[in-house]
Amino acid sequence: MLSRVAEHLYWISRYVERAENTARLISVNSNLLLDLPDGIAPGWEPLVDIMGVRSDFDKRFKEPDERQVLKFLIADRSNAGSILSSLHFARENCRTVRDILPREIWEELNELYLYAQENVTVGLTKRGRFGFLRRVLYGSQLFIGILASVQSRDEAFDFLRIGRYLERADMTTRIIDVRSADLLPDDVADLRPFDTIQWVSVLHSLSAYQMYRRHMQTRVRRDAVLRFLFKDLHFPRAVRYCLDVVGECLGDLKNNEQALKSVHALVRKIDRTNVDTLDQTSLHEYIDDLQLNIIKLHNTMAVAYFPKSGQQQQQG
């Protein structure tokens, strides 16, 4: 398989996954804000931090209020991580490798982008937001479903999965990082009901609530949530699970020694760290370290598999 094609496939998946994650995050935050009293509601600002676009946002907008943040995260084309930009980049990457992928993939990404472009104004209104975000979420899931049902398990499939799971691992760490920092200290007893609501919303942001309940068999608590989201071997958005998939795909490819080493190092870090005993500061440092290692893993793969010149694709 051509290196250029591999790179396009990898980015198609990353961008689709990013659009889905952003859509879910916005949707969950909207719900959360309805449940919390004004005084303690974290508002919309944390989303800017989760997406790692704080400096870009500050340059262009004055106030991190609902309208501005949503505009930036959904519709702003100068924000390369906005839903509209992500879908645009996914489609453009797909256009160049139409001959490799099932025809329905191109058709869905094409249609999804055109939908988003046409309906973005409605999507920014309170009433239209839910339907808009749902279409984006379903589009991503349709994309995954089409691949699952008709794409051969070849190198192309490996690169599509690597892109998706690396983006996911990265996003899961971001959500935990920012959300746990907002969360209320454990010793403020009278706010405990709201505390639980927020940890629940962390799980919802990753569509993890139901699976958490079934597998952890415990009420929603910081330590258990952290263990589940970092270390679970079966939940497909848990960091450990995502890395296992990346490792499995790399196993099919040639020239994989360095990349596999990076994956194994990351897996070891996760297995050996007792996340539930980390205080807020150490947790933040730990997540920082994981994210740097995820970037390193990407770079190692880029050296091994992607064109030397690189396409200067942006990374969130």
Partner: peptide
């Protein structure tokens, strides 16, 4: 002439 592929 060569092409860049994922296997070199």
């Amino acid at each position: 002439v060569y092409m860049h592929t994922v296997a070199g």
